[in-house]
Design a protein around this nucleic acid. Structure first.
Length: 591
DNA sequence: ATAGGGTTAG
């Protein structure tokens, strides 16, 4: 890819024209694009005398009257000051007045628009800059690359990357960090890694971005390894890199890691500010401890909407809908205004605790009292709310009546409800829409197949399987993790790679015999393959979650809660199996 | 003189 675009950007006029036209179309296409929030980073004013905008205007006037504004360095300072005060109108007017601009001048203007979230204007100024005959420099490039990140515009990002190469800026840590971040947001971790590997020198920010990139792209383990490597290389962590490490641990779901990271933050003497504290709440909640999450929440000196929402979400996915609602009440009592995400978390909490009426109440309250326009995620929660409680028709009519774009998650929620309540016809309808949106997602086919299987519709099961084969859709391998003695043990289906494999299978066999006596009947409907029943049983009995649980029983003392983590949905048979194990063995908690 | 990294859902 890189080579290809490099050719386009070869030092020919064609390359340059192509580059400009892409920039131009990017600028135009961004008229419709959503303006996401830009980090607010306020630096000290470069003109210390001007504490506020009126002082600045006065100074600007004085300079004009005295004929001093034509001095480029003076104009630069005023321009910068205007952008810091977010008075882009004045800064742009001044910018246009200056005929001979230097690169600093362009940079300040481009950065000013970027900081204010005025991406269209930012792109246009950047385009004019390139057109003026100057090549983008190492100061403007990070700003523009960041715009590509915010718009997830990978094409434009790659083009800029080629520019970086061509102009020899790839050794600049600012440029490289912006590139890595852009690639990570666009989910191409390989390219982010390549930029990182090629850097001759890396600073704290380079490492931070790369750690965050791994987490963003679903590989938190690698991110945490990188953190260790960073420290081995003698780089001293700061709070921001710790936030990234906390996020990685959250995604990993490892309670041991969570505690180690928490301890490390304490040892380093980092105080919990709003962001680090909130990240901690999220980490503990996702690693399975609602109590520790709440402890962090209670211990925070300052909390904002995000902190409250994180704690509400935590109660939600632990099935504590009432607690989530109580906390929401407390949040309002503290004068904190909820945002759209707070409501997603609340609705989610209600649907997972069967609080249908409360959920609907929240859905109205959100719109009527807080003026939050429901987006597709809110609708998905309400569909789930109706769906789980068996109100499939209401779920469907809600979907039919909504006038915003429907996404895969929405249809998946409806199918999920159909699965619970065995509504094959509606499931088919929803599946048509779902597969149209995501024809390559194996999970959707499997869900549909399971619904057919549950209804005994074997012909249709075969049809789904055939469809998958024809389109070369492969099932994503399922994995289950379990943490024992601070070590993560990972199992796949029929896995024999574990050192205690022999004991695990022996334990599983005994367990199965015991549970079958207690009434457990294996349900081979959840095996998708077209094979004979005995083989089906073999596969079913060695599902990764069963192996992990068997190992958990062997490796932990009596009475220890067993906590397993999966990448895919638990199959129906394993669900039943786990319930039996809970009744007859130790407490099993599944996440 | 100007530039890069941080929190909640999905």
């Amino acid at each position: 890819m890189l080579k290809f675009t490099l050719q386009i950007l070869a030092p020919s006029n064609h390359g340059r024209r192509r580059f400009l036209s892409v920039l131009e179309s990017a600028a135009h296409s961004q008229i419709q694009a959503p303006v996401s929030e830009f980090p607010k980073k306020f630096k000290l004013l470069s003109l210390p005398k001007c504490k506020n905008i009126s002082q600045l205007r006065k100074l600007h006037c004085e300079l004009i009257v005295n004929g001093l504004i034509s001095e480029l360095s003076t104009a630069n300072k005023i321009l910068h000051a205007y952008t810091l005060h977010k008075d882009l109108e004045s800064s742009y007017a001044l910018f246009c007045d200056v005929n001979v601009k230097n690169s600093y001048f362009w940079s300040v203007m481009i950065g000013g628009f970027a900081r204010a979230g005025e991406f269209l204007s930012c792109c246009r100024v950047f385009r004019d800059y390139v057109r003026s005959g100057d090549l983008p420099d190492d100061y403007t490039l990070p700003v523009v690359i960041k715009i590509c990140r915010n718009f997830m515009d990978l094409g434009m990002g790659r083009l800029l990357h080629c520019f970086v190469f061509k102009c020899g800026f790839c050794c600049n840590t600012f440029v490289a960090a912006a590139l890595m971040d852009m690639y990570a947001k666009c989910k191409v971790i390989g390219d982010a890694g390549r930029v990182f590997d090629e850097m001759p020198e890396r600073d704290l920010v380079s490492w931070t971005v790369m750690i965050g990139a791994y987490t963003e792209c679903g590989n938190p383990e690698e991110g945490l390894e990188l953190f260790d490597r960073m420290r081995e290389g003698g780089i001293v962590p700061d709070k921001i890199v710790m936030v990234n490490v906390v996020n990685a641990s959250a995604k990993l779901g490892s309670m041991h890691k969570a505690r180690v990271v928490d301890e490390y933050v304490k040892v380093m003497g980092f105080s919990l500010d709003v962001i680090l504290g909130t990240a901690m709440i999220d980490m503990y909640a996702k690693c399975g401890s609602l109590e520790l999450a709440r402890e962090k929440f209670d211990g925070m000196r300052e909390r904002n909407v995000v902190s409250w929402s994180a704690m509400i979400a935590a109660y939600g996915y632990h099935g504590e809908g009432r607690e989530a609602l109580d906390l929401f009440g407390m949040m309002l009592g503290n004068g904190v205004l909820p945002n759209n995400i707070t409501f997603v978390s609340l609705l989610h909490a209600c649907s997972h605790s069967g609080l249908v009426d409360k959920g609907l109440e929240i859905f109205s309250l959100m719109q009527d009292k807080y003026g939050v326009r429901p987006d597709v995620k809110h609708f998905t929660c309400v569909v789930d709310l109706f769906g789980r409680s068996g109100k499939l028709e209401r779920a469907l009519s809600l979907i039919e009546d909504m006038n915003i774009e429907k996404d895969a998650g929405l249809w998946a929620a409806l199918i999920g409800a159909c699965r619970i309540h065995g509504d094959v016809e509606l499931a088919e309808k929803a599946a048509t829409s779902l597969l149209e949106l995501q024809p390559q997602n194996a999970g959707h086919y499997i869900l549909l197949s399971n619904i057919y299987a549950k209804a005994g519709r074997w012909k249709e099961v075969a049809k789904v399987r055939e469809l998958m084969t024809r389109q070369r859709i492969k099932k994503i391998p399922g994995w289950t993790w379990i943490e024992v003695d601070n070590k993560i043990h990972k199992f796949g289906v029929g896995d024999h790679t574990h050192v205690q494999s022999r004991e695990i299978y022996e334990q599983l066999k005994q367990l199965r015999e015991k549970l079958e006596l207690a009434g457990y009947v294996p349900d081979t409907n959840f095996v998708l393959h077209d094979i004979d029943d005995e083989l089906k049983l073999d596969i079913l009995h060695t599902h990764s979650e069963k192996l992990a649980i068997a190992f958990g029983l062997i490796a932990t003392p009596e009475g220890t809660p067993i906590r397993i983590t999966k990448n895919l949905r638990v199959c129906g048979d394993c669900h039943t199996f786990i319930k039996f194990v809970s009744d007859h063995e130790k407490v099993t908690c599944c996440s």
